[in-house]
């Protein structure tokens, strides 16, 4: 009986937290900066810290993942005498699955945690209260540009990841392992469709970007404003963000490619 009651209480708390986070999201989207010039300069600042600063890690990991995929794929496909299919394997696994998911995971670790820590620190040093005291809504000034920047950056980063992965894979399979260049590209082009594969990957990345950035800014905004609280919130961003990405990926994959 007591267990049921505490389960109920937990569920209640959880629903309340979800509701609060939802309201927070809606408010920060609909209270966009009023002045155009101001909003552009705020957004550029955030695009820089969220997007540009994540670019190196994305390009490097994309290239390596493409290289590893080619090596692994080649060693198996060579047994069936269809090494050319390595291009197809590389492109499909990157575009449909790996680049949105891995980019989002890296994004949660790189940009998400720094967003949480930054906002948490602004809360701890009373900067958020300070905005409020000046009659400036911190949701529109601090949260909205960060959220929008995150939603713009992740799909772009995911595309960059795919492209670097394919180039990395091309390097390994064509230049090192000797797969015929024309066959590499043509097997890819025959099996990859722009709308089902590339666009579905982008759509996945858009979903992930909303969820990860939402978690990151919300954790920062709601954290306990102490050094311990910020640390915990940062960890929660990475853990919750990663779990949410993987769970959401399953749902999206089932919806997009489930009929195969």
């Amino acid at each position: 009986m007591k267990a049921i009651a505490s389960m109920g209480a937990w569920l209640f708390d959880w629903l309340e937290a979800v509701g609060r986070a939802g309201i927070f999201l809606v408010q920060s989207i609909f209270r966009m900066p009023v002045r155009f010039g101001e909003s552009v300069s705020l957004l550029v600042k955030q695009l820089y810290s969220v997007g540009v600063l994540s670019m190196v890690i994305i390009i490097v990991s994309g290239t390596f993942i493409g290289m590893v995929l080619s090596l692994q794929g080649y060693s198996i496909l060579a047994k069936f005498g269809s090494e050319e299919a390595v291009g197809q394997l590389l492109a499909l696994s990157l575009l449909r699955e790996l680049s949105p998911v891995v980019t989002a995971l890296l994004f949660a670790g790189r940009a998400g945690s720094s967003l949480t820590a930054e906002i948490g620190l602004m809360k701890a040093t009373e900067q958020l209260s300070s905005y409020e005291m000046m009659g400036v809504d911190p949701l529109r000034r601090v949260i909205a540009p960060r959220f929008i920047a995150g939603v713009i950056c992740l799909p772009l980063l995911s595309l960059i990841f795919s492209a670097s992965g394919i180039l990395g894979g091309h390097l390994v399979s064509v230049s090192w392992l000797g797969v015929y260049d024309g066959a590499f590209w043509s097997s890819m082009q025959q099996s990859v469709y722009f709308d089902t594969d590339i666009m579905n990957g982008v759509i996945k990345a858009v979903f992930f970007s909303v969820v990860v950035t939402w978690i990151a800014v919300y954790q920062g905004y709601e954290c306990v404003p102490t050094s311990e609280g910020i640390g915990k919130a940062t960890t929660r961003t990475v853990v919750l963000g990663s779990l949410a990405i993987l769970a959401l990926d399953f749902v999206l994959t089932a919806a997009m490619f489930g009929d195969f």
Partner: peptide, 14 residues
Amino acid sequence: GVAALVYLAVQVSG
């Protein structure tokens, strides 16, 4: 980012 999209569209999906 946009160049990556164009590259993927043209070179990868043909």
